[in-house]
């Protein structure tokens, strides 16, 4: 579904991604872990071109995103993204946050989008917050709304960029629960996270990144019980 080939990204002198080749298949739940500064967020943000790769290509459903002729706005509609800082639109109600993109892009009528938003909000138990502004919500509630805002576009894949890192500990669970449910429904997911428990439980494949490279990848059982690369062993010893 997503193919990254020879992906490189530098910020000035600093090389953040070194020649990454990776493929994400439909239905996979790929969890990316690694120390901070390892390039895992940059890798994720390159997948929907929030970061412009310095070189290399990204293919999404067969189309080259890095080709200037590609309409990347249209492709992004099919790639939902959830951010560490939620990034809800503070000047719009929860309902409007969810319906803005589908109605603006002409994918749904106002009524359809509204119905869809209410259905999604009911699913995460926040139907009563539809007409509230985001600042009135807790961090966990905001992040759940951010997830359904992305889902309202009916994406083919969901990208999560450390979705629980900015949350108070007691709110991490409610967000992970929504993500687990999403995984059970078969959504293709790429998740950058520090939640090893989530990686074990939900991941179909875990990638370990360090210094801009994917050093090791394996299904979670093997990844956690039988790490091979010394840097991964070192990393797991610190976080587990």
């Amino acid at each position: 579904m997503i193919v990254a080939s020879n992906l490189c990204k530098s910020f000035g002198e600093l090389q953040v991604l070194r020649d990454i080749n990776e493929e994400i298949h439909t239905g996979e739940k790929v969890v990316v872990v690694g120390p901070s500064g390892s390039g895992k967020s940059t890798f994720l943000r390159c997948l929907n071109l929030l970061e412009q790769p310095t070189s290399g290509q990204i293919f999404f459903e067969g189309q080259d995103l890095t080709d200037p002729k590609t309409d990347c706005n249209r492709l992004r509609q099919k790639m939902g993204m959830v951010f560490q800082q939620f990034n809800l639109f503070p000047h719009l109600t929860v309902r409007r946050n969810i319906t803005l993109a589908p109605t603006t892009l002409g994918l749904q009528t106002a009524e359809e989008a509204d119905e869809n938003a209410m259905r999604l909000l009911t699913r995460i138990g926040l139907a009563d917050k539809a007409d509230v502004f985001p600042r009135k919500l807790s961090g966990g509630q905001q992040q759940r709304v951010a997830i359904v805002r992305a889902l309202a576009m009916n994406p083919d894949v969901m990208l999560f960029d450390e979705p629980t890192s900015a949350l108070d500990p007691e709110m991490v669970g409610e967000v992970l629960d929504v993500m687990k449910e999403l995984a059970r429904e078969g959504m293709t997911m790429v998740v950058v996270t520090h939640e090893m428990g989530f990686a074990k439980e939900v991941g179909t494949r875990v990638l370990f990144m360090d210094e801009g490279e994917i050093l090791e990848q394996a299904p979670p059982e093997e990844f956690f019980s039988n790490p091979k690369h010394p840097r991964l062993r070192d990393f797991l010893a610190k976080v587990l």
Partner: peptide
């Protein structure tokens, strides 16, 4: 306005003009 606002708009498939008009300028 926080860069994250633009990123959120763009990640939903909005064009940069739509993001500017509907998300950045009102704030």
């Amino acid at each position: 306005i926080d860069r994250g606002q633009v990123e959120a708009g763009r990640s939903l498939g909005l064009s940069s003009a739509q993001t500017m008009r509907l998300i950045v300028l009102p704030q």
